[in-house]
């Protein structure tokens, strides 16, 4: 059942580092995170790695495995051949702190810039009433575990640090879509999505959807509909006329 796997792990910090080779025991059913933990316990006690739930629910253990952005806790060793070298590197789109841990503060900064949820009044009896079919659209986006793999893979920022100030990335454009489709929210963020969060830079190549461990249809269900809504707002002749003659607010 057990075998010795060959693992290649990037070790280093902001000043540089390299891939180091290890031979580690692997048992039946184990995932990459188990092997990283065994390395810590037996060979490299100071190997830096983020993790929490080890069940694909918290989105902490994001890394690149053989170059592909993945959660280490959901990547089974059985998906590789016993002879295959498994390479584990930190997410490339974010600055390295140490070993497999990256500085993901970019994401928290973008999150804080989005105008918060602003609900309508409750009904007279103190409840909000919403139909299941209406909550389901935003519920899909709220499945997001903030692993930031979509941010890591998105080519707008992956090798273009210079785009980061003007682009929030799929995770946070999806957050804006979630608020746009939220039955209770009353704020219009469409102009901000385009002008401040860089929705126009997304050219819907769907790389984000492909790496999402929650299987959220980020491009099809969030980003494309959000683009459509932005266009509606900008080019709808009635909206344009209304804003000219003062029937609609200019923003």
């Amino acid at each position: 059942m057990s075998y010795d796997a060959r693992l290649r792990v990037w070790r280093g910090d902001a000043s540089g580092g390299d891939l180091q080779d290890f031979t580690v025991q692997v048992n039946e059913g184990e995932v990459v995170l188990d092997i990283i933990h065994r390395l810590q316990a037996t060979q490299t006690p100071d190997l830096a790695v983020r993790w929490n739930c080890k069940a694909g629910k918290c989105g902490s253990c994001s890394a690149e495995i053989n170059g592909r952005p993945r959660l280490m806790c959901l990547t089974r060793m059985g998906t590789f051949g016993e002879e295959e070298v498994v390479t584990v590197t930190p997410m490339r789109a974010f600055p390295v702190i140490r070993d497999l841990v990256t500085d993901v503060s970019f994401n928290y900064e973008k999150a804080a810039q989005i105008p918060p949820f602003t609900p309508r009044q409750r009904d007279a009896d103190g409840n909000h009433r919403m139909q299941q079919v209406d909550v389901e659209r935003s519920q899909e986006f709220r499945k997001c575990i903030e692993c930031f793999l979509c941010q890591d893979t998105c080519h707008v920022v992956r090798d273009h640090e210079e785009n980061k100030p003007a682009f929030a990335g799929p995770r946070f454009l999806m957050r804006i879509a979630e608020l746009e489709m939220h039955p209770l929210d009353g704020v219009d963020r469409r102009r901000l999505a385009q002008d401040h969060f860089g929705l126009g830079m997304c050219n819907i190549t769907k790389c984000c959807s492909e790496v999402c461990p929650e299987g959220i249809h980020i491009t099809d269900n969030a980003l494309i509909p959000l683009k459509e809504r932005v266009v509606d707002r900008k080019y709808d002749p009635l909206t344009w006329l209304g804003s000219k003659i003062g029937l609609r607010p200019k923003d």
């Binding site: 609900p119 409840n127 909000h128 919403m130 909550v135 935003s138 608020l179 939220h182 209770l184």
Partner: peptide
């Protein structure tokens, strides 16, 4: 629980639209 909805939580609904 109700105030979580004022902060954006989206619970599953009953046919009447309640939580």
């Amino acid at each position: 629980v109700r105030e979580l909805e004022d902060w954006g939580a989206l619970f599953d609904r009953t046919p009447e639209g309640l939580i």
